[in-house]
Write a protein that binds this DNA or RNA. Structure first.
Lengths: 155, 155
DNA sequence: ATATTATAGATGTTGCGACAAGTGTCGTCA
DNA sequence: TGACGACACTTGTCGCAACATCTATAATAT
C-alpha cells in the first residue's frame, strides 16, 4: 500500500506497467492485423501456420501445436478446422494411436506464408523499427523476465 | 534483410520483440482475467468503469469514453449496454445535443469497483511484483517508446 | 428556408473464442 | 478379458467483438 507518486489513475507502479503493456500490445497488434487481414488470417492462425512450417516435413499432434502457440488456444480444434477448410493444412489420425491427430502444412499453406512473408517483416519494422538495437534487446529481456514466473516451460 | 543471429523461428529482432510482447501480455492478462472473471467483468469493461469513476461526478460522452480506453473499442455501444443492464452505469441523452449520450457510473458500479479493488491490486503484484522498481520503470519507458509513433495523442 | 454534409450512436450480421460436456481410443490392472 | 480411468480431441452452446449499415440530430451551405 505505498503511495509513491503513481501516474494519475494508476494505483501502483505494477498496474501502470501492465496498462502500458496492454496498450502497446494493442497498438502494435493492430498493425499486424492489418497486414494479416489482407489474406484473411488472424495473428494466432498465422502463428500456427508458422509453427507447422518450422516443423515440416514432420507433422505435429494437435495439442502439441497448441502448446507451441504464443497465445493459449483452448479452441484449437476449430481454428484448425478453418485452416483445413481453406486447404492450408491437413490432418490425419495416427494409425498407431488413433486418439492423436497429426497436423501438417500443405503446399498451399506454404505458398500463403511465402506470399505474406515480406509484408509481415516490413510490418514488424513499422511496429518497432524506430527503436535502436539496444532498446529492442532490453525490451525483449524485460518482457521475458516479466513472464518468467508465469510459464511452466521457459523460452 | 540482415541475418544477424536471431532466435530460432524469428526472422528479425523486431519480430522477436513483438512475439515477446504478445506472449507476455497473454500470460499476464490471464492472471487479471481470473480476478475480474470472479465478478463477471472483462478487462475492457473494468477499464471502462474505472474511467467513469475517475471522471465522476461528471459524465462522459460515449465516444469520448471509447477514446480513453486502453484498447480500441469499435463496439462500445454494446459493451455499455451490458454494463447498463447490470446497473453498473447509466446513460442519458443530452437535451442540448440529442446526438450525444452521456455515461455515468452508478453507486452499484462504484461498489463493485470497491469490492474488487484490493484483489486487482494484489493481482498486479502477482503479475509483476518479482521485478524491481528500476526494471519496472524501464519497462514502462520502453513500452511507451515502442508505441509512441502509433498513437495520435501521446500519454 | 431548404438541401447537404457531418456527427453520435444504434442495429444487423457474422465469425471467432471460451467453457463445458461428449465421443472414441488406449493403457492398465484385477 | 473386461472394467475403469486417462487421454486426445470434438461438438454444443453462448457471449463477445468486429465490420458494415442505418437512424436521428446538428451544423453548414445555397
Amino acid at each position: 500500500m505505498k503511495a509513491t507518486s503513481n501516474k494519475p489513475g494508476c494505483d501502483s507502479l505494477e498496474q501502470e506497467v501492465f496498462l502500458n503493456l496492454w496498450k502497446t500490445y494493442d497498438r502494435l497488434k493492430a498493425i499486424e492485423d492489418e497486414v494479416l487481414g489482407k489474406v484473411g488470417l488472424s495473428a494466432q492462425q498465422y502463428n500456427a501456420l508458422r509453427c507447422l512450417r518450422w516443423a515440416a516435413p514432420a507433422a505435429i499432434a494437435t495439442l502439441d501445436l497448441g502448446r507451441q502457440l504464443v497465445s493459449r488456444a483452448p479452441d484449437i480444434t476449430r481454428m484448425l478446422d478453418r485452416l483445413e477448410l481453406r486447404g492450408l493444412l491437413k490432418r490425419e489420425r495416427l494409425p498407431s494411436n488413433r486418439r492423436v491427430v497429426e497436423v501438417k502444412i500443405t503446399p498451399a499453406g506454404e505458398t500463403l506464408l511465402d506470399d505474406i512473408h515480406a509484408g509481415v517483416l516490413e510490418c514488424h519494422v513499422r511496429q518497432l523499427g524506430h527503436l535502436d538495437q539496444k532498446s529492442l534487446k532490453q525490451l525483449a529481456k524485460l518482457l521475458k523476465a516479466a513472464r518468467l514466473p508465469h510459464e511452466s516451460s521457459q523460452t
